[in-house]
Simulated scan of single mutants.
Amino acid sequence: MMKHFEEFEQEAVRIALTSGLSRERVAKDLRIGKSTLGEWLAQYRPSDLVSAPQADLARENERLRLENRMLKEERDILK
């Protein structure tokens, strides 16, 4: 349950920072208080919003690079 709440907070902050909408509008759309959104914005740094998804992408990219390298080696052996 706590993880979902943290994800909701991060998504709310991301929307507030990147959507171009006012904080009031974002808070209203998400049905949270403007002061709550302000507190969340004060807590998070830009790197916090990017790090989780970027870390997942980096792991996936590394896995795919490894798989690609292994497939190329197997192909070269078969040649």
Score class of each variant (00 low, 15 high):
residue 39 E to S: 14
residue 17 L to C: 12
residue 63 R to G: 02
residue 30 L to C: 02
residue 24 E to H: 15
residue 63 R to A: 12
residue 49 L to G: 09
residue 65 R to E: 12
residue 68 N to E: 11
residue 20 G to K: 14
residue 35 S to Y: 01
residue 25 R to L: 11
residue 50 V to P: 01
residue 1 M to C: 08
residue 30 L to A: 03
residue 44 Y to L: 10
residue 74 E to L: 14
residue 4 H to G: 12
residue 54 Q to P: 03
residue 69 R to D: 10
residue 50 V to C: 08
residue 51 S to T: 15
residue 3 K to P: 09
residue 37 L to G: 07
residue 56 D to F: 00
residue 69 R to Q: 10
residue 36 T to C: 01
residue 70 M to A: 15
residue 53 P to S: 02
residue 69 R to N: 02
residue 57 L to P: 00
residue 13 V to G: 06
residue 47 S to E: 15
residue 72 K to Y: 07
residue 38 G to T: 08
residue 22 S to T: 14
residue 38 G to C: 07
residue 42 A to N: 03
residue 53 P to M: 02
residue 76 D to H: 13
residue 57 L to K: 05
residue 23 R to V: 07
residue 39 E to F: 13
residue 38 G to I: 09
residue 58 A to I: 06
residue 31 R to G: 03
residue 73 E to H: 05
residue 47 S to R: 08
residue 62 E to I: 02
residue 48 D to R: 11
residue 14 R to E: 15
residue 41 L to F: 01
residue 53 P to N: 04
residue 6 E to Q: 10
residue 26 V to E: 07
residue 52 A to Y: 09
residue 27 A to L: 02
residue 36 T to A: 05
residue 63 R to S: 06
residue 30 L to H: 09
residue 68 N to L: 06
residue 18 T to Q: 06
residue 75 R to L: 15
residue 76 D to T: 09
residue 72 K to S: 04
residue 71 L to H: 02
residue 56 D to Q: 09
residue 54 Q to D: 11
residue 26 V to R: 08
residue 75 R to F: 14
residue 23 R to S: 06
residue 4 H to V: 12
residue 57 L to H: 03
residue 19 S to Y: 12
residue 17 L to V: 11
residue 5 F to D: 12
residue 51 S to K: 14
residue 38 G to W: 03
residue 40 W to E: 07
residue 5 F to L: 07
residue 10 Q to V: 14
residue 66 L to Q: 13
residue 50 V to N: 10
residue 39 E to W: 08
residue 66 L to G: 04
residue 50 V to R: 13
residue 42 A to K: 12
residue 8 F to N: 06
residue 46 P to I: 10
residue 45 R to Q: 13
residue 48 D to K: 13
residue 5 F to N: 11
residue 62 E to W: 00
residue 43 Q to V: 12
residue 55 A to F: 08
residue 19 S to C: 09
residue 7 E to Y: 09
residue 15 I to N: 08
residue 16 A to S: 11
residue 49 L to N: 03
residue 8 F to M: 08
residue 38 G to D: 04
residue 66 L to P: 01
residue 47 S to M: 09
residue 41 L to E: 04
residue 11 E to V: 08
residue 45 R to Y: 00
residue 36 T to Y: 12
residue 62 E to S: 05
residue 49 L to V: 10
residue 68 N to R: 10
residue 55 A to Q: 09
residue 34 K to M: 08
residue 53 P to E: 01
residue 48 D to Q: 11
residue 64 L to I: 01
residue 71 L to R: 15
residue 45 R to W: 00
residue 12 A to P: 13
residue 64 L to K: 03
residue 16 A to N: 02
residue 61 N to Q: 09
residue 10 Q to K: 10
residue 47 S to A: 11
residue 78 L to S: 04
residue 25 R to W: 01
residue 41 L to W: 00
residue 43 Q to I: 06
residue 17 L to W: 13
residue 39 E to V: 10
residue 1 M to Y: 05
residue 2 M to S: 14
residue 74 E to R: 15
residue 78 L to F: 00
residue 58 A to W: 07
residue 16 A to V: 06
residue 32 I to F: 05
residue 62 E to T: 03
